[in-house]
Design a protein around this nucleic acid. Structure first.
Lengths: 334, 334
DNA sequence: CTGAAAGCGCTTACAG
DNA sequence: CTGAAAGCGCTTACAG
């Protein structure tokens, strides 16, 4: 049988209150008492009952993280960063996937009931609308958002518009005038603010350079290897294809790179490519990209979460830097 | 204030016992009563207190997953598979990283106290020794192992020895006689049984073909892009380098591919390469590999976990198939 | 089908 | 520094 706090108290000849204090390292316990309690607990293999602690103490020392996918590079890095910080602080991490619109709504519907299960909820590329956010707040969740500037809660992101602007400007400065963008539309019809901001940046750079954006330069679908392949397939059948494309993720760009090779499209000779992320394989692949500090985004978000309730009321938004990394896949048009 | 079950009971004019039954869909509740209770709970925004449910009910509907890393492709796919099955069954997932030996011991030390926090523990590429496993069992955990055949608990894996044997034999059948292997040693000094089994298979194939294994054909370190790069660097300075190398992961093989290109080593002309996993990018890269059903490993492991306690006593070990996928990076030596 | 009551195992004022 | 006691909010036999 599991030992309970009563067992320890009896064996150590103290009250359960003292056992509780001693084991949690609280003040006002004589050192000799503490030693005896700790030793007894050890001997009996005592560990506090989780449910009982949560019920009596009111905290779970658990943080929830909701994200659309866990099997893509970006999220896996975020996860690692979050986990590292949280576990160092003695907190656990429970994850929720909200990939499809259905799962997203299901999660939102359940969020209220999660209140007593987690001490905080980290929204990773999860964008509630104003009503949904309102409801999350009213449920009493400690919220931190990663990926977009959400009013009213602490959030952390890169400047997606600016990063896309700079990526596009890089291609313009190389001399390209026919520049496409890939990754604008996702499976879900939810317009992701992240992708929308990148499209804005792209269009802004074109406009500032006096260039036009032909509608059919918007290529591909999801930010995956398959999406990149698809983008190249679309490009390959155009009569006047772009000479440079900005891909919204490196995985997508790498899929494009491979498909271009297969179709005999030379990179960067026929086509310049710039990606986004600085994926582990980007350097190996020679991929030009916009580097974002992904893992650090995760660890910083976790730190923000742990610093509740030290936040100001309302949301402070923090912006992380993005760096242009020029490698081999972007060059002047020939 | 949060509404409690008492609030609902009072408003719906029933006892708390009836509220509890009605809301959890148990039998022996009049349909009209149930409707009234559900409607009242809804109206009050009632959700059961997690800690109270766990304490009174004895289950958490939460599964723990411990793995060495979460930021590598393999684990991210496993995680997605596990999450999908678990969430469909209404279970939550809490993750623990045990990357370094220190963290590994720390997790093991904590495992006992996790007993009331999770209903089951999934070991992903986490290999306790016999004593450690014994202790996990004695703590009362429902255990499922993914990655190795562990006695006494249900487990699921591929046949790493056989897969490595076939990868090596593929290279032999192409005509190679100088064949290296990359990925044998990890940072941690823990000898991973997975890697050991792959080395066994490699050596077995060589032996069966009457070939020798020169000691310095064991290349590289970790199963990462950087590890692959390192393997090629080591190979490049050898006086009689292998003409073919079996890499223990695709990420490693892709790092190697890139570094080979950089150093002017032609693949497959100068060097044949076969990887392991069938990473998302393997097809795009033209990488020959041993395909393992990674995501499915995750979902099956989760299903095994959910089927407790229907297991036989002791562990049934299940083997998943691995398939040789020949693409462009492996060819006869020239 | 429903209720009264015990019990789950802690934490936290309150006293001393 | 320590203890007695209330209280956290559920679930589950046991009766009826």
């Amino acid at each position: 049988m599991r030992a309970t706090i009563e067992d320890v108290a009896r064996e150590a000849e103290v009250s359960v209150a003292t056992v509780s204090r001693a084991l949690r390292g609280m003040d006002h316990v004589a050192e000799s008492t503490r030693r005896r309690v700790v030793e007894t607990a050890q001997r009996l293999g005592y560990a506090p009952h989780f449910g009982a602690s949560v019920l009596a103490g009111g905290v779970t020392r658990t943080i929830g993280l909701v994200a659309p996918y866990f099997n893509i590079w970006y999220t896996s890095q975020i996860l690692a960063g979050v986990e590292e910080v949280l576990s160092a602080a003695g907190h656990d991490l429970v994850i929720f996937a909200a990939d499809t619109p259905v799962n997203r709504d299901r999660f939102l519907a359940r969020a209220h009931s999660l209140r007593t299960r987690i001490d905080g909820l980290l929204l990773v590329d999860f964008f509630p609308d104003i009503d949904q956010l309102q409801r999350l707040i009213e449920s009493g969740h400690n919220l931190v958002a990663l990926g977009e500037d959400l009013d009213r809660i602490p959030s952390l992101s890169i400047d997606n518009c600016d990063a896309a602007y700079r990526a596009t400007r890089h291609l313009i400065e190389l001399g390209h005038t026919a520049i496409g963008i890939a990754g604008g539309h996702q499976v879900s019809l939810d317009p992701s603010p992240v992708l929308a901001a990148r499209i804005d940046g792209y269009q802004g750079a074109l406009a500032d350079a006096g260039l036009e954006e032909p509608g059919d330069y918007r290529l591909g679908g999801m930010l995956t290897v398959a999406g990149g392949r698809q983008a190249i397939d679309e490009l390959a059948v155009q009569s006047a294809p772009p000479t440079a494309v900005f891909f919204m993720s490196d995985e997508m760009a790498m899929g494009a790179l491979a498909q271009a090779r297969r179709l005999g499209i030379e990179v960067p000779g026929d086509l310049s490519i710039i990606g986004f992320d600085d994926h582990d394989l980007a350097e190996a692949t020679g991929l030009s990209t916009m580097r974002q500090p992904v893992r650090q985004l995760g660890s910083l978000a976790a730190e923000k979460m742990l610093s509740f309730p030290d936040h100001e009321a309302g949301g402070i938004h923090e912006l992380m830097p993005v760096e242009l990394v020029v490698r081999d896949t972007s060059a002047p048009p020939r």
